[in-house]
Simulated assay, not measured.
Amino acid sequence: MTRTVLTGAVIALVAAGLAVAGGALGITTLWPVLLAAAIGLAGGHVTIGRVAGFVIGSVAAFVAMAVQAGVLPALPSAQAIVLIVVIVVLTVVAAVSGDRVPLWAGLAGYAAFAALYEPMYADRPTAFLAEAPVAFVTVLLATALGAAAATLAELVTANLADRSSSSPVVEPTPTAQLAEGEAV
């Protein structure tokens, strides 16, 4: 329970700092940061594979939106084809990596970019070249900050766990053992 409370406290402090100063970094919403922190914390230690999967998914989403904006007609079937191709690519990456780059992390990365950029695209589809790169960099920066928050939380909780496990154990003295044995 202590580990969870400390992890939450570290992530809350990072999120609060970004809520105050994130605008200067182009981060106007914190959910991508929190999503990346959750990806980093999922199932234990932060791994490069999870973060890589998230980034690969974000790249795949960017490419998918570029293909939709510049090559394919604006039809639901075109969007479905692009989505199928992206999911196949993310699945192959996960399979080839032996799940060290998990499929779920790639899908989360795709979702993060798509959730941030798709409303902008719907409002101004012709502004892809101006808006999509900014959204992409924002997602990558949020990913980095979220992974850093998860790593920091992991380091803080691991350090505190090491301190508590290395506290000296007080062994009973032989006299105390003898007195306990005599009382029985």
Rank of each mutant, 00 (worst) to 15 (best):
E171H: 11
V59L: 08
I84N: 04
T4Q: 13
P32M: 04
L129Q: 05
A60C: 14
L72P: 02
F136T: 05
V55F: 02
A183C: 04
A66W: 11
L25Q: 02
L107Y: 06
V88I: 15
F62I: 03
V93C: 03
T157W: 02
L178C: 11
A132D: 01
A148L: 06
Y110N: 04
T157F: 01
Y121P: 02
T175R: 11
V14Y: 01
P73F: 12
L178E: 12
A122V: 14
V20L: 13
V96H: 05
V14H: 01
A122Y: 08
V59Q: 02
V71S: 10
F54V: 03
A153L: 03
I48A: 08
V92M: 09
E131A: 12
V96N: 05
R3C: 08
L152A: 12
L141R: 01
G70E: 12
V93H: 00
D99G: 07
M65V: 11
V14K: 00
L178D: 06
G146K: 00
T157M: 03
A9E: 07
A74H: 11
G43L: 08
A64N: 04
A16S: 14
L30I: 06
P125D: 08
P125T: 09
L116V: 13
I48T: 09
P168N: 10
A15E: 06
P119H: 04
M120A: 14
G22N: 05
A64M: 10
S165R: 11
A37L: 05
A114V: 15
A42Q: 10
V59N: 01
V33L: 06
A161K: 04
T175M: 08
G44S: 07
E131Y: 07
L30F: 10
R100P: 02
F54Y: 12
A64T: 04
T138S: 07
A127R: 07
V82R: 00
L30Y: 07
G43Y: 08
V88L: 13
V51E: 00
Y117P: 01
P102N: 06
R124Y: 13
A114C: 07
V93W: 01
